[in-house]
Design a protein around this nucleic acid. Sequence first.
DNA 1: AAAATAAATGTAATTTTAACACTAAAAATT
DNA 2: AATTTTTAGTGTTAAAATTACATTTATTTT
Lengths: 230, 230
Amino acid sequence: MVLNNYSKEDKVLLAVDCIIFGFDNEELKILLVQRDFEPEKGKWSLIGGFLKKEENLDKAAIRILHHLTGLNNIYMEQVYIFSKVDRDPAERTISVTYYALIDIATHDEKILKQNPIQWFNLKDAPKLIFDHSLMVEKAIARLRRRALGKPIGFELLPEKFTMRQLQKLYEAILETKLDKRNFINKVISQDILIKLDEKDMTSSKKGAYLFKFDQEKYNRKVEDGFNFKI
Amino acid sequence: MVLNNYSKEDKVLLAVDCIIFGFDNEELKILLVQRDFEPEKGKWSLIGGFLKKEENLDKAAIRILHHLTGLNNIYMEQVYIFSKVDRDPAERTISVTYYALIDIATHDEKILKQNPIQWFNLKDAPKLIFDHSLMVEKAIARLRRRALGKPIGFELLPEKFTMRQLQKLYEAILETKLDKRNFINKVISQDILIKLDEKDMTSSKKGAYLFKFDQEKYNRKVEDGFNFKI
DNA sequence: AAAATAAATGTAATTTTAACACTAAAAATT
DNA sequence: AATTTTTAGTGTTAAAATTACATTTATTTT
């Protein structure tokens, strides 16, 4: 250990809370867990845990999410730190929030095996413990800003999707109705989608063409920092 | 203390590092401090300190900034948390960064009294300790994004300023040259400035009209989330 | 056979953005 | 004293992006 004079400083518990947004082609949802320890045992809560000494925060978020939901390989992004002194009545804790977007259909089998975990429509989610509702609000604001910054379909949709699905997703995030033709024109003009020969036959027997993201073109554009104002 | 089972969890040191950007009508600058304790004593560093148990992070940032620079009443905003396991060789610390924008002229007397504190042009700042350079990069990116999100002249300019100053500020932040007429037209069209009868006589004897922000109109627009793409 | 649902497609009007040059006042230079 | 340089101030036009908007086709339902 290098010589230092940090020894007189206070140490704190550092929590990580994960805000997992999901989409099922209609509604924006959030994944919550029924807390199984005190305080507030039995209440609905974000997916959370504590940072361990030997890991960084990104790793902690991944570990905690996996431990409580079985979800793997979910890319999460830091949102904000909450540090109000009495935010957790039991003990002084600071909480770092992370958020992710996932396609519910792709990940659902795993999640459903875990018992006290459940998807809620964002609009009718239960009251959450501590300052978790505030955390969700902050994450929604971030999600909305990000949706305008670059297309987010990658994470929230299955690999192949229809224009309708993509539009519904944006409508759910931005809480507006969008014009179908303008939406399609805008998306197409970004030149980041590949139109497949396949059709999705689930919502009509006529079928709707499937698209997928052109990862390469997409990456190139993200580097230049393009904006995707719908 | 409420019953809880947090007791087995690790606690960590939580640092706060402040990135203070300044503007002197020409260049974007950053305020740095020469570290006076080990490790890395004598090297240039962000303005930093540790969170105390009885304060939240916003308060800690304000206290630390005041303690090291004498600056008061500076509004800072959270940027990001850095948590790489060995980022500080002395001991495991996690650091929360905050940033602020200030007008150098308005605040300089206070700062200059403090000895090991100094303004550097962003472009030729010295090498910083630990991951502080990374922190600065992240804060610059945030500053740039924010400059496009809403006008930031409030904090970086004196109360009364000329169009030229405002334009120089944007040019410094965005690292581009802007067209004078287009810039003025754009700013005027936002309808958030009040043109004063006074003139600034410092840069020419002809004088340039001074403006100030119309705080009320500005607040109303910020609520609606307007964007200020220059 | 008629009505209803989902998919696909293009144009014209409006708004926003970008490019661009001169005049006036005063100071500095010759 | 004349010339050049610096700073301030001001509008127009072309190009690009955004918005509003309606019909046809395939298929299923009644």
